[in-house]
Computed example of a mutant assay.
Amino acid sequence: MTPAAAPCVLLVDDEEAITSTLAPYLERSGFRVVVASDGEQALEALGREVIDIVVSDVMMPVLDGRELVRRLRREERWTPVILLTKIDASFERVAALDDGADDYLGKPFDPPELVSRIRAVLRRTTGGRPLVSAPTLLADGLELDRAARRVRVEGDSRELTPKAIALLDYLMAHPGEVHTREHLLQALWGFEFAVTTRAVDHRVAELRRVLGDDPQRPRWIETIAGVGYRFAGEVRAG
């Protein structure tokens, strides 16, 4: 049997000090790596190479990471993208997801965490349009219309607060992945907007109450004791 080809990562960053150390690490982790120094070079590489995932810095000359994602999504090119953002800028994290990125990672970061994020994104995007870019998410009687911010259970509309809908959206777009409360705070609130991780627990409680999801026998949202939460149901794009 012929072994499967290594997934190809397009690493985009204008700092040679980063690409010269990170590219070999990714190769040692089992990936093939193509390097570009800005968004324009990245688009050229995407035109000539078979790229499985893009890992791109946000702040770059010529064409930055956010505009790179926007161009790809406008052209309905669904190569998954992880954006590398400044860890202290919550607006960048929100913008990364709004622009169509599949995930983000704050700088500075640990290379092993980046490898884990790459593998997780590849698992959930292989074989079609990624969930993060789908207009509707469906899971065992639960429907989330992302544009209208409307939620239905078995066809019946359910009223949720905007933050609860945002949390449901994030969990459904990352099914099967365990998210710590701290990570959810960083992704959806920004640490400066929430004093305690109880903010996440309150929104999970709201989701369970309104959706009718029993925490003892969860249909959708599962508590991972001592860690956080994950979306347990199978999700498909609508």
Score class of each variant (00 low, 15 high):
M1G: 14
A4K: 11
A5R: 15
A6R: 14
A6V: 00
D13F: 01
D13L: 01
S20D: 14
R32E: 15
V33H: 05
V35C: 15
G39E: 03
Q41F: 06
Q41N: 14
E44Y: 14
A45L: 08
D52M: 03
S56M: 08
L63T: 04
G65P: 05
L68H: 08
R70T: 10
R70V: 09
R71Q: 12
R74P: 03
W78E: 10
W78A: 08
T79S: 10
T79P: 13
L83D: 06
L83C: 07
K86G: 15
I87V: 15
D88G: 14
A89C: 10
F91M: 15
A101E: 04
P108W: 02
F109Q: 08
R117E: 00
I118D: 01
V121T: 07
V121N: 01
R123Q: 15
T126C: 13
P130S: 08
V132T: 15
S133D: 15
P135A: 11
R146V: 07
A148P: 08
R149V: 05
R152C: 12
R152K: 15
E154A: 11
L160I: 02
K163F: 09
L167G: 05
L167W: 01
L168I: 03
L168K: 02
H179N: 00
R181F: 00
Q186D: 14
A187D: 06
R198S: 12
R208S: 02
R209P: 05
V210C: 04
D214W: 11
Q216F: 08
R217M: 08
R217T: 13
I221H: 02
E222D: 13
V227H: 08
A232D: 06
R236M: 10
